[in-house]
């Protein structure tokens, strides 16, 4: 499966407090959380972003708290996937557990510009920048985690297993 979209860039150490600031943690509604996505770094982000857009970031994306509201708000804003030099551990885990596509790909930050059109092949991890013609590859996803994604996240995975 291929994801294709327009790029928004963010730097290193984008923490969960700027992805979704604490005052908005009084709801679990994905759409509402999406309205405040990235508000701590760019107050106008949700006005500019269009469904299917892709976030490209530096290292340690999603550091800080364990709030699942962070991947939820990214999904809610219509972002199709996040590609980063590296992810913080809990964010990485949460994204898989709830089915937000993320890719770790060293070198992407330098090689891709904001506004570029890129595509990601989910199966091979191949990333193509259609604006400048550059290619990148993402680290392969461990097979257990692919199973999680295939099942539609951790909850469906364990419920399927219990029914079986």
């Amino acid at each position: 499966m291929k994801i294709e979209g327009r790029v928004w860039k963010f730097g290193d150490n984008i923490d969960t407090d700027v992805i979704i600031p604490a005052p908005y943690l009084v709801t679990t509604d994905v759409e509402e959380l999406g309205k405040h996505c990235m508000e701590g770094v760019d107050a106008e982000f949700t006005e500019k972003v269009r469904p299917g857009d892709i976030i490209v970031a530096g290292k340690n994306f999603g550091c800080g708290s364990s709030r699942e509201h962070a991947p939820m708000s990214i999904k809610g804003a219509g972002i199709s996937c996040v590609i980063a030099e590296g992810f913080a551990r809990i964010f990485f885990r949460n994204a898989f557990n709830m089915g937000l596509a993320i890719f770790e790909s060293p070198g992407v930050f330098q090689g891709i510009e904001e506004g570029d059109r890129i595509s990601v092949n989910q199966d091979t991890g191949e990333i193509m920048d259609h604006t400048n013609g550059k290619r990148f590859s993402a680290s392969p996803i461990p097979s257990f985690m692919q199973e999680l994604i295939k099942a539609g996240g951790l909850m469906s995975y364990i419920l399927n297993k219990r029914r079986a």
Binding site: S66, E68, I90, R93, N94, M98, L154, M155, I158
Partner: peptide
């Protein structure tokens, strides 16, 4: 260790 809400539900 810290995890997400989905892990706690599971």
């Amino acid at each position: 260790t810290g995890v997400g809400s989905t892990d706690i539900a599971a």
